[in-house]
């Protein structure tokens, strides 16, 4: 009986949180499409989220591209298909690794910081102070962050794609002794616009997800330092999980046939 009670309570709490998240999502996205727009704040967020995430995304995709070239070379030599290394690196980076790795890394860096910042503002009454001064927190705090996430993620992924392919090129040419011209030719000739486009669309969706999760957990953070810490953890964990789930759903949508 006690077990059923616990399960029932857990189910109800999950449903309640899901409901609150859906309402928050609807409110937050609607505020992204209606004035007032705080352009200076959006620009600040673009710099914080986009520019300062460049090193982490660049390094992640660079080394992933290098590892991918090495691993696929080792695997493909068993089938005498070494020539496919460049194509596999390019396709894997643009379709999957670029958006997913950038999404996860930016969630770790930015999702946590959004949740911590909004959580601190909430517990120190700064969010209420905004309301008192006639400013809607959804316009001033949430919309700029979500807009910046949606705009920055595709740009980061595009840069990450280039860096990742370059990482594969470095290993291919300098370690595995591929001819540079042939490596580049094989990279470009099998890469279709849809491969890159699907990755960028995924990146926008991931940007929306990580922005929403960071804002939702920060904005609904409970009192005290413990509440802020919990909000930060929840923002990162839920953001990462949603990115992985939506990665499958979007891949299914684009490439299932």
């Amino acid at each position: 009986m006690v077990l059923i009670k616990h399960i029932g309570r857990y189910v109800l709490e999950t449903l309640e949180t899901t409901g609150r998240l859906v309402i928050f999502f609807a409110r937050a996205t609607s505020h992204c499409f209606r004035p007032p727009y705080f352009y200076r704040l959006i620009l600040k967020q673009v710099i914080d989220i986009g520019y300062y995430s460049l090193p982490v995304v660049g390094l992640t995709t660079l080394f992933s591209g290098m590892v991918l070239a090495l691993q696929s070379y080792n695997g493909f030599t068993r089938f005498s298909s070494e020539s496919a290394v460049a194509t596999v690196v390019a396709l894997s980076i643009t379709r999957e690794l670029g958006p997913v790795l950038a999404g996860l890394m930016v969630t770790g860096r930015v999702g946590s910081s959004i949740a911590a910042e909004l959580g601190s503002m909430k517990v120190s009454d700064q969010v209420d102070a905004l309301r008192i001064l006639g400013t809607n927190p959804f316009d001033y705090l949430i919309a700029p962050r979500i807009i910046a996430c949606i705009v920055c993620l595709p740009i980061l992924v595009l840069i990450g794609d280039i860096v990742g392919i370059f990482g594969g090129f470095l290993v291919g040419v300098y370690k595995l002794n591929f001819n540079p011209a042939i490596y580049l030719y094989q990279t470009v000739s099998y890469l279709e616009p849809m491969d890159i486009a699907s990755g960028l669309i995924k990146a926008s969706i991931f940007g929306l997800l990580l922005g929403i999760m960071g804002c939702f957990h920060g904005y609904n953070c409970s009192r005290g330092a413990q509440g802020v810490g919990l909000a930060t953890t929840n923002a990162v964990v839920s953001g990462c999980i949603l990115i992985l789930i939506f990665n499958y759903l979007v891949t299914e949508l684009f490439f299932s046939s």
Binding site: R27, M121, D125, A129, L130, R131, I132, L133, G134, N136
Partner: peptide, 22 residues
């Protein structure tokens, strides 16, 4: 509906912890 105060034009509030924007 947006939880913003409609009294904002007329009423100011000084919070216990000041609540200045960091």
């Amino acid at each position: 509906s947006d939880n913003t105060t409609v009294a904002a034009n007329s009423i100011s509030y000084v919070f216990q912890n000041s609540a200045l924007f960091d």
